[in-house]
Design a protein around this nucleic acid. Structure first.
Lengths: 222, 222
DNA sequence: CGGAATCCTCTTCGATACTG
DNA sequence: CAGTATCGAAGAGGATTCCG
């Protein structure tokens, strides 16, 4: 089931990796799946600009390369979801290093026709955690275009930070803020004191966990 | 001077990075320049398969984005060399994380029509160094297709490993081995004892530095 | 409605040839 | 040596249609 695809024909691990995930959209699909499993149409909706046929092709190729799996998803009536495989999850450092590099292009703010998604912004948390403790935090973010509250669960430990969309498991802390304020905090160097003073952040649960979270993730208290 | 280029139109640092270096060949050009400055025709020769016109376009785009600079190179009669800028050098983690991921596709050895370059194989050294000491090693590698000895200089310190092609500066140790043996060592898990027993590696200078180098870079002694 | 396949157009890429 | 020019082939974008 191999391919009649373009490759670089170089015996080099960088080139080999690019043979597999170097095409347009591939790494953005991985980025999406880093936040949890998604259905075909979820991906289609979140990756505005990709065409159905191209998405299908990329998914098929990546399944072929064992980067993702197509799971039967019995719960909701829907047929199945795409999910990162063991191998696919090892692309996280690639996505994150691109993300770190790309931050410099975010400083000037979004362009007019840019799409926004708060999940993309949460990925930087995976880079920032330097702490020694573990815990679970639920983030409730509201105020995006649709005015729908989005729920993410952040499970952090010294070795790994797991971020999932739409999970509602038990967590040590529940934190609510607006997506705008999150972006100010994460990308525009806004201080917590500033947002707290304006009562922009609501915290329920073990506030110590939240404080630890903030400090370990490099957010400024003052 | 900006572009009528395709981009993803997403306010996301991963997408932004891919807007800049996500196109075919871009990251391989960066990979080449991580081993030192190169002339246009050096790049054209090393990136077999790229066309002159595409290489020119990529170089122009990357210069536009301040990833590389085009320096007047007075010494050799040649006109100029391309070199990574400060910003471009920050793509190293991207290239290296791709390289780490891609190692899994190297285990089966090269395909028939694969190009080989020992410089590409040396890049993994940047990932492997875990030591606390600093030093400089000259690697002399012989036995590639052209039977030309290739010279690389590895300058390692706790914070950074710099690898340059064709340098002949003073170094603590000079190590000679064949490219085949290097590949066995680095990618096929060959042990040093094995190669030493067969007298495959020649070391001149402070042998302690060399030993430290080997251990800190994760090579197996037994 | 989820999950594609089709048709068509436009852009990018690759191969070769050519020029300052 | 350092690129342009040209042209056909492959890939990507957009809209629509099809199937279960």
């Amino acid at each position: 089931m191999s391919e009649r695809k373009r490759h670089y024909h170089q015996f080099c691990s960088v080139a080999r990796a690019l043979d597999v995930v170097g095409e347009r959209w591939s790494l953005l699909i991985i980025r999406e799946l880093l936040l949890g499993p998604r259905r075909y149409s979820d991906l289609l909706a979140r990756l505005k600009g990709i065409t159905p046929n191209l998405l299908a092709k990329r998914l098929a190729d990546m399944e072929c390369h064992d980067l993702i799996t197509k799971q039967q998803h019995s719960s909701i009536g829907s047929t199945h979801v795409y999910e990162l495989s063991e191998v696919g999850r090892e692309l996280e450092p690639v996505v994150l290093s691109l993300g770190r590099f790309g931050i410099r292009y975010m400083l000037s703010g979004p362009k007019d026709d840019d799409l926004m998604d708060i999940g993309w912004g949460l990925l930087v948390l995976k880079l920032r955690y330097q702490g020694q403790k573990s815990g679970t935090i639920t983030l409730l973010l509201d105020g995006d275009a649709d005015a729908v509250i989005q729920c993410y669960q952040v499970k952090f430990s010294p070795s790994y930070v797991d971020i999932r969309h739409g999970q509602h498991w038990a967590s040590d802390v529940v934190v609510s803020l607006s997506v705008l304020d999150y972006r100010r905090l994460a990308f525009q160097g806004a201080s917590l004191a500033e947002l707290n003073a304006k009562n922009k952040i609501k915290v329920e649960g073990q506030q110590k966990k939240w404080l630890h979270f903030l400090v370990s993730f490099g957010f400024e208290l003052e």
